[in-house]
């Protein structure tokens, strides 16, 4: 069926999806920050009474920084996708979205490596419990962001390639950026300041 011979859909409000994404990202960000705040609070309590939070050398900064770099690269590819959608450049948009998703999968893979490398059991200590809660929450957020990206990709399959599609990609990108900011928080509070 030739879709080009059919009428275009009625235009809708262009900002709706963006505003929705903005609010959803905000709510998720607050939940995440709340977890990080509790993490820092418990770590501080442990230090006050002279306990070690993590044993020396149990958390390596290298893999964590590699994940941060991967996610920073994904920020660029996401914006590439947004720009492609705005200029109605379908091949580049698919390529950019695919690369972003690939970076997402890479981060998940790196997290798997970190979990194996750390070798902490969840019931080892309060620190281990918090470590898994905070990083697990981030992984959940990343998975949601990846699903949003996949949805944006599917929406680009066919049909009118207009501003509405660019808005959807932009909305997904916004959530992706919020996810990267959350990881930056994890990187700093969990891996850098330990």
């Amino acid at each position: 069926m030739k879709t080009t011979s059919l009428p275009s859909p009625v235009p809708t409000r262009p900002r709706t999806v963006l505003i929705g994404s903005l609010l959803a990202s905000s709510a998720t960000f607050i939940a995440f920050c709340s977890l990080v705040a509790l993490y820092v609070r418990h770590r501080q309590q442990a230090r006050i009474v002279g306990q070690d939070w993590f044993t020396e050398g149990s958390l390596q900064l290298g893999p964590a920084s590699m994940m941060l770099m991967t996610l920073l690269l994904s920020v660029v590819t996401v914006q590439w996708a947004v720009q492609s959608a705005k200029t109605e450049d379908r091949p580049h948009q698919f390529m950019a979205l695919g690369t972003t998703l690939l970076f997402g999968v890479a981060v998940l893979n790196q997290f798997w490596f970190v979990y194996q490398d750390v070798g902490l059991a969840i019931d080892d200590s309060k620190a281990a419990l918090f470590f898994y809660v905070v990083t697990g929450a981030f992984i959940a957020m990343l998975v949601v962001a990846m699903i949003a990206m996949i949805i944006a990709t599917v929406r680009s399959l066919a049909g009118t390639f207009g501003k509405e599609l660019a808005n959807i990609v932009q909305a997904s990108a916004f959530f992706w950026h919020a996810t990267v900011v959350c990881y930056a928080l994890v990187w700093y509070t969990v891996f850098v300041t330990k």
Binding site: L23, S26, A27, T28, I30, A31, F32, S34, L35, L38, I122, D123, A128, L129, F130, Y132, V133, G136, A137
Partner: peptide, 20 residues
């Protein structure tokens, strides 16, 4: 939207604590 996500964070922590 800025208050109840904090409850969800609390619940996540309690749930993991309960099973961890």
């Amino acid at each position: 939207l800025t208050t109840f996500p904090i409850v969800i964070a609390n619940i996540a922590l309690i749930y993991t604590g309960l099973h961890g």
